[in-house]
Amino acid sequence: MTYHAYQRLSPKNRAQSEHRQAVQALFPEVTWHQEQGVRGNVPASERPVLSALLAALQTGDVLALHWIACLGRDIADVVQVITALLEKGVVIETVVQRLRFSPTDPSTQAMLQLLAGMAEEQTRRRLVAAEWGREALREDKESWKQRFKGRPADKKRHRQIAELLLEGETLQACASKTGASLSTVKRVKARMNAEAEGQHCLRAGHAK
């Protein structure tokens, strides 16, 4: 049995040193795999260090995590990763709540069902937000144009980014596919959210 630990390093996480110490205290013989330069919303398959680790883990190995969120922010993706590891005979241990996902533990299936339910709710919320965004773009195209007034060269690219975001692409994927900077993608997403929220408030006001 070999113990491995995965950690995504982020300058915004000031507790990552404490997280590592907590994992190390429970699993002293663990081999560390640390990811740098990757955002939390990037899927496991697109993380170089994590994807290599998942491929290398074998039956009987243990993957130690501070919490399952280390695998990603998308719960459906996390469930998929955990399920794939269980099918390989790998055990997943977490420090937070001391959870243990094991192929031979009856409670593992119940935990996966709970996570699957959370994933469905997360997806539903995203679909609702995406629909608000589509309606905002359809019903207030002039306002959308005004927000990017003075930057005609970027208008087509912003549209492409918006379409990719509505299709559920990650920020990093949008930046890669359109050739835009990550900050540009973030600005477009922020404006889309503002448009969607404004449309929602307007409808709520009419409903009163």
Rank of each mutant, 00 (worst) to 15 (best):
H4F: 02
Y6I: 04
L9T: 05
P11L: 14
P11W: 11
N13C: 08
R20M: 07
R20A: 05
Q21N: 09
Q24T: 07
A25I: 01
L26E: 09
L26P: 01
L26V: 09
F27T: 03
W32Q: 05
H33P: 04
Q34V: 04
Q34D: 13
G40Q: 10
E46P: 00
R47L: 01
R47M: 01
V49M: 03
V49L: 01
L50D: 01
A52Y: 02
A55I: 01
T59E: 12
A64P: 03
L65C: 01
L65P: 03
I68C: 03
I68L: 02
I68R: 01
C70Y: 04
C70T: 10
L71K: 02
G72H: 05
R73L: 06
I75V: 15
Q80T: 12
V81N: 00
A84W: 04
A84S: 13
L85F: 04
E87V: 14
V91L: 06
E93F: 04
Q97D: 15
R98W: 08
R98N: 13
F101E: 08
P103I: 09
S107Y: 07
M111S: 07
Q113L: 10
L115T: 14
A116Q: 15
A116S: 15
G117E: 13
M118S: 05
E121S: 12
T123M: 13
T123N: 12
T123H: 11
R124S: 11
R124E: 14
L127R: 15
V128A: 08
R134C: 00
E135F: 09
A136M: 06
R138Y: 08
E142V: 10
G150V: 10
A153F: 04
K155M: 10
H158G: 03
Q160G: 05
I161E: 10
A162V: 09
L166Y: 03
E167M: 08
G168D: 12
L171Q: 10
L171N: 10
Q172L: 08
A175F: 03
K177W: 09
T178D: 14
S181N: 10
S181H: 07
S181P: 00
S183P: 06
V185T: 09
V185N: 06
K186S: 14
K189Y: 13
R191N: 11
H200R: 15
C201I: 12
G205V: 11
H206V: 10
A207P: 02
K208E: 14
K208A: 15
